[in-house]
Design a protein around this nucleic acid. Sequence first.
DNA 1: CTGTTAGCGCGTTCAT
DNA 2: ATGAACGCGCTAACAG
Lengths: 341, 341
Amino acid sequence: MNDFSAAQRSRVTMLDVAEHAKVSKASVSRFIGDDRALLSDAIAQRIEQAIAELGYRPNQMARGLKRGRTRLIGMLVADIRNPYSIAVMHGVETACRQHGYSLVVCNTDRDDEQERQHLALLRSYNIEGLIVNTLGHHRDELHELHREMPLVLVDRKVEHLESDMVGLNNPQAVEMALAHLEERGYRDVLLVTEPFDGTSSRIERVNSFKAQIEQRPALRGTSIETGSELTARLKTFLETPGPGPKALFCANGIAALASTHALRELNINLFDDLGLIALDDLDWYPLVGSGITALAQPTTEIGASAFECLLKRLRGDDGAMRTLDFSARLIVRGSTLGVSR
Amino acid sequence: MNDFSAAQRSRVTMLDVAEHAKVSKASVSRFIGDDRALLSDAIAQRIEQAIAELGYRPNQMARGLKRGRTRLIGMLVADIRNPYSIAVMHGVETACRQHGYSLVVCNTDRDDEQERQHLALLRSYNIEGLIVNTLGHHRDELHELHREMPLVLVDRKVEHLESDMVGLNNPQAVEMALAHLEERGYRDVLLVTEPFDGTSSRIERVNSFKAQIEQRPALRGTSIETGSELTARLKTFLETPGPGPKALFCANGIAALASTHALRELNINLFDDLGLIALDDLDWYPLVGSGITALAQPTTEIGASAFECLLKRLRGDDGAMRTLDFSARLIVRGSTLGVSR
DNA sequence: CTGTTAGCGCGTTCAT
DNA sequence: ATGAACGCGCTAACAG
């Protein structure tokens, strides 16, 4: 009954519509496309009715093949289970749809081989532009793709790849975090970041952190990475005497999750003895302990901007490559109530 | 310089390869496809080299157009920001890739109009199968699509649509929750669910809850929906004397998030005065209060099974429609430590 | 084994 | 304003 295995699923085609409406394929094509104005009302009516009666849907594959425009945007995401990526992706998708584009998302699971496969895949489907939120190894393939289509980087730079880039103003965000912590009376700050696997935003945040700590004599700053030894390292930090009240600065949501887990293992009273501020603003931040103070990224705007960059290039903009840096927004919660208590 | 606006981005085509290797297009096609065995080593070598030198990638659009097989699976998701959906999607994508398929995901943002648009879109790209995790209004379109391709429902049934379905064994999950709560000494259970918008899994859970409460004379059971009045309703529940210790049963992760927010507003001490068990297992459950007891869904398996259903149908299986019910897994945390304390 | 030919469904010249 | 014919890149007959 359901013979879906048949290679050719018979679908109603443009020719069917043309015959049904007793017009030529060209007229149907004009009706479908942007040339509807060129048609007489009578013919337009007939075509419209035929389309409705037959349930005709133009075949985008064929359209893409012919016109070279598929109205498809590709997005390469390193980790689809990272809320930041999801949020940005949602922003991209919304912007795409508003402009008649569709989004094909490929998740690489932080795996270089998958990144390569997905790049080949996206290319083979004739996407018109690419949004990259991965490590971007496979330079050659990326360069090749970039010759064929516009490309915009999100959150992470890729070395030797000159292209538009949209992300967070990391130095500014770090500045906001340190200023807030210092103002609230914390003096000994530990930065917790995911391991350096080459992710540019992580590196920028740590470098900014180190540089700015130099500028703030009142503060002492150290940093560690998440991983199996996180709990032990945190313990050491907490037990080592310092210049004053201690606080954690988690460089993203994943680090915040890991750190909070570790603090619970250590039976730390959240957040009486220890301050905490985290980049990203996840929906559960308000729920743990007295609430986690956040530096929220404008993810929807970031996503929308990424698409708009692409769109400009698609429309012929040849200008110099741009870098868009968005600002984080501070949301104060219980985890940085301070030590004046 | 970057003239991406040109409709025809010049890419290397099969003809280029053929000429470069001094063979016919057909030979190149055989090399690309599954007929490589039919080629002489000499020719295969030349083609392979030509492909490498030119950086040729077959155009999937053209292949799909010709063969009627696009190796594309579509997925319609109600809310991409729901962790459950993400997890299932990840499972689907992994299974797809392992079998040479790619996944096109469309997020409807719980909007019927977007659902319609996305359905049309997916059809126009000649997907070979469809995975649906939305309300599935637009019956006509779904039926039409289902005549053209296999379709599998995830988590939510769609009325009058006979198709494969994979999801959670809801009565069993409710049974596990109530048994656990009763064993731990709770007697007054409030079910918190998202509003009934027609989502079958929500309805099933509530109905099972009501039915099973009847079977457990020791328990009293009531239910409320999330929304602006959630906090007030919770307050009422907590203040109203009942048959014994009180507990919340959140019917999914979103309800758990909302409920926990509300409890914090009410300054409830999590979870000394009130038990809590929640369906889904989100990564932050261990972090709030003494940890939230969860009934985890096997999301990866659910996703993989959904794809495998599709694959069977694509391979010609005409059998009766199947319903796959997976079991939840209980993960006990501090929120149901019980009242014997 | 290999090349030639004819479309897949559609858009786009050209004529009319 | 409308239609006829050609080709997008590729696969699937059919010949040789």
